[in-house]
Design a protein around this nucleic acid. Structure first.
Lengths: 241, 241
DNA sequence: CGCCCCCGGACTGTACACAAACTGGAGACC
DNA sequence: GGTCTCCAGTTTGTGTACAGTCCGGGGGCG
């Protein structure tokens, strides 16, 4: 994992998810090369991987941009996530090992601590252990395809927002869901696991939705050069509707 | 599409799906470069893309192989395909345009012709138009993510086998499903479309299953060098169970 | 004005050379 | 015989030079 292309991948990914690289930004290979301190070759590698995960978008003329997501896409993302993660939970319930169940419990205990451990909510810890919990479950589903598909469903950043704006009751509910998932795994009851997970994610969607409405989106409309000359080869990049 | 890396991508992909590159084969960049008449750079590009689509598999030490699929994986593939394509059909029913519906009908007419047009079944034509039909529907779902996810679900080769071993009645049934899908689209009835597609694909799975049993898999076991020295860094490639 | 064409600068694609890492086997040692 | 170590050949990773393509603006023309 110390290859230049891995370093570049991590650096760029991190910057996109954290917002350091704003949506609509064009990613130029040479710039990134300088940023990461490597040559263009590993950068190209990293960009290919990010493209496969839909964390960057390429135009028809091979220019690369940081995408942004419309409300419609957010809905689609959560629907797919519910579909896939509940399927993964069902598979996991049938295949999970005792050791993995213990790991799940450990992470969920940490989540509990993050909520009630101190006076103030430890959002960072919550997010981290929440992510791990879901990852372990995905791993237990023993399907590489599901794992790859999930990585197509970008939501780290959205998740981050969600965790911050949940109230304590909401977070506790989330913790309780996880506990029930552990029970379902113990019982090897796939359908139980599936329905818990489906419910868990749909709820998260609606919380996110609330958040998104709450923070009046600054109507910073993309500068739209009024349909200038049609040379037919102008690169189009997806704009938020 | 005339870039060297696109040519390489197409060539390698075609050879894998057609079986010209057998499962377990190691793909060496230099060999492929010679095969495609380009340098290693575009080959590396192509391999990255194929890897993202799970059409090749890399070991932990960056060696690239043609994968093969166990019965368990085939089941997983069809389950996911049913999940995703029925979701896509539901989305499509709500969004499809009149022009797209016409295209669907055109392809389905061709399918009809392939089945009954001449004395002998035109398997090639059937497979082609069947693929197009499904692609149009997927396109109509207007979700890039669904399209990318579907490409993770390799099944062209399996599909090929399926079409050959369907009997005429089965193929007609498939044609009738497509007709009903068009009706559901016209009616904008998402749930109807979903259930047709789910049924359509599950049936295909069981036909494939029958085929796979029929043709006694030649028990050509992978040479397993009896667990020799454990240097710990030996590349492991997934073997068929 | 508004449209079109053309061109220089900017960005991506490809080849190739060299560096780093992995593989499989030969030989030392118990 | 079994296991470990080391090494030469093989394969992949990276830097760099140059070729090809695209973008956006300036000037000609209606």
């Amino acid at each position: 994992m110390s290859r230049a292309s891995d370093v570049a991948y991590e650096m760029i990914r991190e910057r996109i998810l954290s917002g350091a690289l704003a949506p609509q930004t064009q990613l130029k290979e040479e710039e990134l090369a300088e940023l990461c301190g490597v040559s263009r070759t590993p950068i190209r590698d990293a960009l290919r991987r990010l493209e496969a995960e839909m964390l960057v978008r390429r135009t028809d003329t091979q220019r690369t941009f940081v995408p942004d997501w419309s409300a419609d896409e957010v809905e689609e993302i959560f629907t797919l996530r519910a579909l896939l993660e509940s399927h993964a939970a069902a598979r996991a319930a049938a295949r999970i090992t005792a050791a993995e169940i213990e790991t799940l419990e450990r992470h969920n205990d940490e989540i509990e601590k993050a909520i009630h451990g101190s006076i103030k909510l430890d959002a960072e810890a919550f997010v981290t252990h929440n992510r791990h919990f879901h990852n372990v479950l995905l791993q237990a589903s023993q399907s590489e395809r599901l794992i790859k598909m999930r990585s197509l469903i970008v939501e780290q950043s959205i998740l981050h927002r969600t965790a911050r704006n949940y109230d304590k009751a909401g977070l506790s509910r989330s913790h309780a869901d996880h506990e029930e998932l552990v029970l379902a795994c113990r019982a090897k009851d796939s359908e139980w696991a599936r329905s818990i997970m489906d419910n868990h994610i749909r709820r998260a969607y609606h919380v996110t939705l609330g958040d998104m409405e709450a923070m009046t989106p600054p109507p910073v409309e993309a500068k739209t050069p009024p349909a200038k000359g049609s040379r037919g080869s102008k690169a189009e990049i997806a704009l938020v509707k």
